[in-house]
C-alpha cells in the first residue's frame, strides 16, 4: 500500500514537472513574447525595453529555472495587465470556479448515479435503452450552445434564474447544469455497466440466497463494488469540469479561473496564462491522485495488500 502510494506520488510529481515545462515552452517557443506583449503599435524601441523589463532577454534556460524555482515557492509571477501577483489573482477567482465545479459535479452525480442504477436494474428494457439513447443525444449537445439556450429559456423567457454573474447562489444553477450535462452521459454509462456486472455476480446471488432485502442487495452489496470506477471518473470529471469552465464561465460571464485564463490569452498576459494552465493541471493531477487513494480505501484488496 505504501509502495503503491509512493509510486503514485512520484508519477504525479513527474507529470507536474512535465506540465510545468510544457506550459513554459508553450509561451516561449511559439513566438516572440515581447512583440506579443507590446502590441501591434509598438516600435522597435518599445519591444527592446519590454524585453529587458520582463527579463525576456535572458537565456531561455535561465528564465525557465527562474520560473520553476519561484513557482515551487508559490510565486507564479506578476500579471502584465493587472500588475498583481498571479497567485493572488488565481486565489481571488478560485471560489467561483470551485463552487461552479462542485455544483456541476453534484448535479451530475445526483442525476447520473440513480438513473444508472435504475437502468442497470431494468437492463435490456425499454427504459434502459431509452436512457442510453438520451445519453448519446446529450453527448452531442455543444455546451456553450446549451448554455445560451438555457439563458434564453429560463433567464429571459421565464425569468426564473439570473443569466449572468453570481451575486446570489442561484447564479450557479444554470452554469452548473450545463457543466453537469457534459459529465452525465459518461458517468451514467459507467454506473450502469458497473451495476450490470455487479448484479450478475456470484456474490449478489449469495446475497439473494441469504434472503437480504432488495435495498440491501442493490445499494449495499452491488453499489459498493460498482462505485469504485465511478469514483475515479467523478474525480476526473471534476478536473475536466474545472478546465471546461473556460467556456461556461465566458458564456455566463462568471469571473472565475477559467475566465481569467481566457481573458489573459486574449490580452497576451502570459505569466497568467502559464500559471492558470499549471494550476488547472496540478488540480487535475491532485484529483486523480485522490481518486486512486479513495479507490484504494474502498477496495479492500488494494488496501490490505
Amino acid at each position: 500500500m505504501l509502495v503503491f502510494f509512493g509510486r503514485r506520488l512520484l508519477v504525479a510529481l513527474l507529470v507536474t514537472l512535465t506540465v510545468l515545462t510544457v506550459s513554459f515552452a508553450l509561451t516561449r517557443l511559439s513566438g516572440d513574447l515581447a512583440i506579443a506583449i507590446a502590441g501591434p503599435q509598438a516600435t522597435e524601441q518599445d519591444i527592446i525595453i519590454i524585453r529587458k523589463a520582463y527579463g525576456l532577454d535572458r537565456p531561455v534556460v535561465v528564465q525557465f529555472v527562474d520560473w520553476v524555482v519561484s513557482a515551487a515557492s508559490g510565486d507564479l509571477g506578476r500579471s502584465y495587465i493587472y500588475h498583481e501577483p498571479v497567485a493572488r489573482l488565481i486565489k481571488d477567482r478560485l471560489p467561483v470556479t470551485l463552487t461552479l465545479g462542485l455544483t456541476g459535479l453534484l448535479i451530475a452525480m445526483a442525476t447520473a448515479i440513480p438513473i444508472g442504477i435504475l437502468a442497470a436494474m431494468r437492463e435490456g428494457t425499454l427504459f434502459d435503452r431509452g436512457i442510453m439513447m438520451i445519453a448519446v443525444i446529450g453527448q452531442a449537445m455543444p455546451s456553450f450552445w446549451l448554455g445560451l439556450l438555457l439563458i434564453i429559456t429560463f433567464g429571459l423567457k421565464l425569468g426564473w434564474l439570473p443569466i449572468s454573474g453570481v451575486d446570489e447562489w442561484d447564479g450557479y444553477v444554470l452554469p452548473g447544469i450545463v457543466l453537469a450535462f457534459a459529465a452525465i452521459p459518461a458517468m451514467m454509462r459507467l454506473t450502469r455497466s458497473g451495476m450490470v456486472d455487479a448484479l450478475a455476480s456470484d456474490y449478489i446471488r449469495t446475497a439473494r440466497a441469504k434472503g437480504l432485502s432488495r435495498a440491501s442487495i442493490v445499494l449495499k452489496h452491488a453499489l459498493r463494488n460498482a462505485a469504485m470506477p465511478v469514483v475515479a471518473v467523478a474525480a476526473v470529471q471534476l478536473g475536466f469540469m474545472l478546465s471546461g469552465s473556460v467556456v461556461i464561465e465566458s458564456v455566463f460571464a462568471l469571473h472565475g479561473v477559467g475566465y481569467l485564463g481566457w481573458e489573459s490569452i486574449s490580452k497576451n498576459d502570459f505569466p497568467v496564462v502559464q500559471a492558470v494552465v499549471l494550476f488547472l493541471a496540478v488540480v487535475y493531477i491532485f484529483l486523480t491522485l485522490m481518486a486512486d487513494l479513495l479507490n484504494a480505501f474502498l477496495d479492500p484488496r488494494l488496501r490490505t495488500s
Partner: peptide, 18 residues
C-alpha cells in the same frame, strides 16, 4: 498521463492565440 493533465481548451486557446 501528462496529456490528460493538460487543460485541453485553455492550452488550445493559448496556442491558437500565440
Amino acid at each position: 498521463t501528462c496529456r490528460l493533465s493538460i487543460p485541453l481548451i485553455l492550452v488550445a486557446l493559448a496556442v491558437v492565440s500565440l
